[in-house]
Simulated scan of single mutants.
Amino acid sequence: MSYGPPRPAGRLLLTPEDKEAPARALRLRRLGLGERPEPELDAFAHRLAHLTGAPYAMVNFIDEERQYFAGLHLPGAPAPASPGRPEVGRWLPRDHGYCPHVVVRRKALVLEDVRDYPRFAGNPIVYDYGIHSYLGAPLVASGGMVLGTVCVADATPRPWGRTGLETIKSTAAELTARIERCEADGLPL
């Protein structure tokens, strides 16, 4: 079956409105997150990929206009960006992918085959990057603000199962606690 390029489907392809984005962007700037690669978050993404068996894993921070992967694990990816060398694959527009939905929903999202869900099948991430499976959870701070997401993805459909869901949720809680400890102590991540 051919899925071809996305077709307009009314409101189905719209990224949900994120009223918390300005406050989140301000807090992320204060934390120094979401503007540059973080080696600790790259290591976290690598561990997440290993735990889930997924080829792609990200720690994603979202502001009003874009998503920034401060932690990133890609199969065969070059080393993280350095001064004078452009970043590869570190950001996406806010209307690409599924993390903006996780942030607004404030709960985990499991898509074994994104093409099975009309709301998500036409997302540019399917056609531009070949992503067909997604599992993500929000980084919900103790005050209730969602800081971003942790997620994994695959180019082939896959059953994430209860184990995958519990893994993504527990790693999100672990990372949120770590970020909050650093914030409370005034330390960098």
Rank of each mutant, 00 (worst) to 15 (best):
127 Y>G: 11
145 M>P: 00
49 A>Q: 07
35 E>W: 13
110 V>F: 05
69 F>R: 11
23 A>S: 04
133 S>W: 07
143 G>I: 00
103 V>R: 04
71 G>N: 09
78 P>D: 15
144 G>D: 01
70 A>I: 06
150 V>L: 07
92 L>Y: 13
102 V>H: 03
135 L>I: 04
95 D>F: 14
184 A>W: 01
89 G>V: 07
131 I>W: 05
157 P>F: 07
143 G>K: 01
127 Y>Q: 11
173 A>C: 01
102 V>N: 01
94 R>V: 13
4 G>P: 00
109 L>V: 10
77 A>K: 10
120 F>N: 01
58 M>K: 11
8 P>E: 10
61 F>R: 06
73 H>T: 00
75 P>V: 12
155 A>G: 12
41 L>Y: 12
64 E>A: 14
3 Y>D: 09
80 P>H: 10
146 V>K: 02
122 G>K: 05
12 L>I: 03
165 L>D: 00
4 G>I: 00
28 L>H: 08
67 Q>R: 10
21 A>S: 09
141 A>I: 00
119 R>K: 12
101 H>W: 12
127 Y>F: 11
171 T>E: 15
54 A>K: 03
64 E>L: 11
91 W>T: 14
104 V>F: 05
180 E>Q: 04
127 Y>S: 14
46 H>D: 14
5 P>F: 14
93 P>D: 15
49 A>E: 03
151 C>P: 00
36 R>Y: 12
52 T>C: 05
136 G>L: 08
101 H>Q: 05
132 H>A: 14
124 P>D: 10
102 V>T: 10
40 E>R: 15
150 V>W: 02
183 E>T: 01
137 A>F: 06
165 L>E: 11
22 P>Y: 04
50 H>E: 15
32 G>H: 11
179 I>L: 14
155 A>E: 10
89 G>M: 13
134 Y>M: 08
35 E>Q: 15
178 R>V: 05
50 H>M: 13
99 C>M: 10
24 R>N: 01
150 V>Q: 01
79 A>H: 10
58 M>Q: 13
145 M>N: 00
32 G>T: 07
98 Y>E: 06
103 V>G: 02
162 R>S: 06
7 R>P: 00
94 R>Q: 07
20 E>Q: 13
6 P>G: 13
52 T>I: 00
26 L>G: 02
18 D>M: 03
156 T>E: 14
149 T>H: 05
84 G>V: 02
111 L>G: 01
106 R>G: 08
33 L>M: 14
8 P>H: 13
178 R>Y: 10
65 E>Q: 15
124 P>F: 11
64 E>P: 00
123 N>K: 08
64 E>Y: 03
175 L>Y: 02
13 L>F: 06
176 T>N: 03
172 A>H: 02
149 T>E: 08
188 P>W: 07
176 T>D: 02
153 A>S: 12
94 R>N: 06
